[in-house]
Amino acid sequence: MKNFDIGEVNRLISKRRSVYPNMYSGEIIDNQIIKNILTNANWAPTHGMTEPWRFTVFSGEGLRKLAEFQSGLYKQTSQANGKYDESKFLKLASKPLLASHIISIGMKRCDNEKIPEIEEVSAVACAVQNMYLTATAYGVGCYWGSGGITYLEEAKSFFNLDERDKLLGFFYMGIPKTKWPEGRRKPIEDKVIWIS
Rank of each mutant, 00 (worst) to 15 (best):
S122N: 12
L66Q: 05
E189M: 04
L133T: 07
D190R: 14
L90S: 14
D190P: 02
E27A: 15
Y172K: 04
I13D: 02
G7H: 13
Y143W: 11
I149Q: 01
N22F: 14
L167R: 02
D111Q: 09
K35V: 04
L63C: 11
L92R: 04
L133K: 04
F69K: 12
Q129T: 09
S146Y: 07
M23L: 11
D111C: 01
P52V: 05
S157F: 01
K75C: 00
K95C: 00
N10H: 06
M23H: 14
P52C: 10
G141K: 10
E153W: 01
A137E: 14
I193K: 13
L161R: 08
N40G: 01
S59Y: 03
G139L: 07
H101L: 02
K179L: 10
K191E: 14
R109D: 03
E119P: 09
K108F: 00
F171A: 05
S71C: 05
G7R: 14
T178K: 12
E68P: 03
P45D: 02
N36P: 00
I188A: 15
E8F: 12
E182F: 07
Y24M: 09
L168F: 07
K83D: 03
S122H: 13
Q79E: 08
G62C: 05
S14I: 01
S104T: 13
I103Q: 06
S14G: 03
G106H: 06
M131H: 05
T46S: 15
R164H: 13
Q129N: 10
G183H: 12
Q32M: 03
N112F: 00
Y151E: 09
L167K: 02
T134A: 08
K191S: 14
I34M: 06
D30S: 11
G147W: 04
F170H: 05
K2D: 13
S87M: 11
G62L: 09
E86R: 12
S71V: 05
E153F: 07
T46V: 06
L73E: 11
K2C: 04
T178M: 10
W180Y: 11
E154T: 02
P52W: 12
I28L: 08
Y143R: 00
F89L: 09
I6R: 12
D85F: 05
K91A: 11
M131Q: 04
G183A: 11
E117L: 13
K91R: 15
S94D: 13
A67C: 09
L133E: 06
Y172L: 02
S196T: 11
R164P: 14
I13V: 15
F69R: 09
G145H: 01
S14F: 10
K179A: 12
N40C: 12
S157C: 01
K108N: 11
L152F: 15
L168P: 02
